[in-house]
Amino acid sequence: MTAETPRDLTTKIDGRRAVGARNRERLLNAAVEVFAERGYRGTTTRDIAAAAGITERTLFRQFPSKAALFQEAVAGPVERFFADFRESWSARPRGSRDSETEIREFFGSLRTVLEGERALLQAFLAATSVGDGEGLGDLRTTFTPVIDSLVEIFAVEAELRGWNADHGIAVRLIIGMAFSATVHRDWLFTDDQLANFGYLIDQLTQMTLWGLAGPRAE
């Protein structure tokens, strides 16, 4: 038998990593669908593995528990949004866009991401609120790092634009409005209001920038 060369070993390792990455992606895609359909309590790791077309043993090589898989399925897209937002913000010269444009785009993009994860976020809230989500932790723990990152961005923008609000609270209120307008939309808004996405984003932007009084007349 011919001895394996270092290159052969490297190729094998790279191949295993590629297979592992593909399995992880398949599991996350399957988890999103199954959790959204059945909720946290009604879903088993066997269900997810079957939906992904892999074995349950393979699932546990990628994720130590159902809770860990659910956490990543819920948090992953939102964390990627904040990472992309920070990268986009960092690439722009400071002050290159007016406040209204910055905030409107942020609200619009964030609400689009949350809309895509709405069923999972609802399942998360349901599981933790009734005690069925043992091991899940809470959304505060999950999203604190990305919120803190956004607070840093807000502090820079606030100094540039003369915003005087408490940075940490302001950022959380902004995210909270986008979150509520998405996750709790069914009882908050009428069908007519929900049908006009642009108008809703305009109102969120107006409330953030000018409060109830609206834009000042020039």
Rank of each mutant, 00 (worst) to 15 (best):
E4A: 14
P6R: 04
R7C: 09
T11D: 14
D14W: 07
D14H: 04
G20L: 14
A21R: 07
N23R: 11
R26M: 10
L27K: 05
L28P: 00
L28C: 12
N29P: 08
A30P: 03
R38A: 09
D47M: 06
I48M: 03
A51N: 09
A52H: 04
I54N: 00
E56A: 13
L59I: 01
F60A: 06
F60T: 05
Q62K: 03
F63G: 04
P64T: 12
K66R: 08
A68P: 06
L69H: 02
Q71C: 10
A75Y: 00
P77H: 12
V78Y: 07
V78K: 00
E79Q: 14
R80L: 08
R80Q: 11
F81R: 04
F82E: 02
F85T: 08
R86I: 11
R86C: 11
R86D: 14
W89A: 12
A91C: 09
A91M: 05
P93T: 06
P93I: 06
R94K: 12
R94P: 09
S96W: 09
S96L: 00
D98N: 10
S99T: 13
E102R: 12
I103W: 03
R104A: 11
E105H: 14
E105A: 15
F106I: 05
F106E: 02
S109V: 04
L110H: 02
T112K: 07
V113D: 08
E115Y: 03
R118I: 03
L120S: 05
Q122G: 09
Q122L: 10
Q122K: 11
Q122A: 11
A123N: 07
A127K: 02
T128L: 00
T128D: 01
S129R: 09
V130R: 14
G131L: 03
G133M: 07
E134V: 15
G137C: 09
T141E: 07
V146I: 11
V146W: 00
I147Y: 01
I147V: 14
D148T: 09
L150Y: 10
V151R: 01
I153G: 05
I153V: 15
I153C: 12
A155Q: 13
V156R: 13
V156F: 09
E157W: 11
A158I: 07
A165K: 03
H167K: 10
I169Y: 08
R172D: 00
L173T: 12
A178V: 03
A178W: 03
A178K: 01
A181Q: 03
A181L: 04
T182Q: 01
R185W: 02
R185K: 15
W187H: 15
L188P: 07
F189H: 10
T190W: 10
D191T: 15
D192M: 12
Q193N: 07
N196P: 13
L200G: 11
I201H: 09
T205K: 02
M207K: 10
T208K: 00
R216W: 10
E218M: 14
